[in-house]
C-alpha cells in the first residue's frame, strides 16, 4: 500500500496531538489552587479541627515558587527541609475558632507539592486563648 502525503501528515498530526496531550495530562500535570485547598481540607488534622470548630475559614492559599521556598529553607532549614528544591508548593492556611466557646483561635498550615499534591509539611499554629 502506497503511503500518501496525506497519510504522513495525518499520522504526524496525530503524533503531535498525543504527545501534547501526554505532556499536558501526565508530565506537566500540576495541582490547582482549588485542588490544593481540598487536599488540605481533607487531611486528618483539618478534619479533626472541623469537628471541633465553631468556625473555620481559609486564611491564605498562595503559590510559593522555588525562589521563595529556597529563601524559607535558608531561614529555617530544619523546619522546611521537606520542601522541594526544584519546584514550588502551595501554602494553605486555615484559621479555626475552637469549641466550646469560639474564643480559642488557632491555625493550620499545609505546604502541598504543586506537582504531586502531597502534603509535604503540616504545621499546627498555637492556640491563642
Amino acid at each position: 500500500m502506497a503511503i500518501s502525503d496525506k497519510h504522513v501528515t495525518f499520522f504526524l498530526l496525530l503524533g503531535i496531538l498525543l504527545f501534547a496531550s501526554y505532556q499536558t495530562l501526565i508530565v506537566n500535570s500540576t495541582i490547582t489552587k482549588e485542588e490544593a485547598i481540598e487536599i488540605s481540607r481533607g487531611s486528618p488534622t483539618m478534619q479533626e479541627y472541623i469537628e471541633n470548630a465553631t468556625e473555620y475559614f481559609l486564611a491564605e492559599a498562595e503559590y510559593l515558587n522555588v525562589t521563595i521556598v529556597k529563601s524559607m529553607k535558608e531561614q529555617n532549614l530544619e523546619r522546611y527541609c521537606s520542601l522541594p528544591d526544584d519546584h514550588g508548593v502551595w501554602e494553605i492556611v486555615w484559621g479555626i475558632r475552637l469549641k466550646p466557646y469560639g474564643i480559642d483561635f488557632t491555625s493550620l498550615w499545609h505546604y502541598i507539592d504543586k506537582e504531586t499534591g502531597e502534603i509535604l509539611l503540616e504545621l499546627r499554629g498555637v492556640i491563642h486563648t
Binding site: 523546619r79 491555625s107 498550615w109 504545621l123 499546627r124 499554629g125 498555637v126
Partner: peptide
C-alpha cells in the same frame, strides 16, 4: 512573634 507550636 510565634506562630507554630514548636515556636513556643
Amino acid at each position: 512573634r510565634i506562630i507554630f507550636d514548636e515556636d513556643l
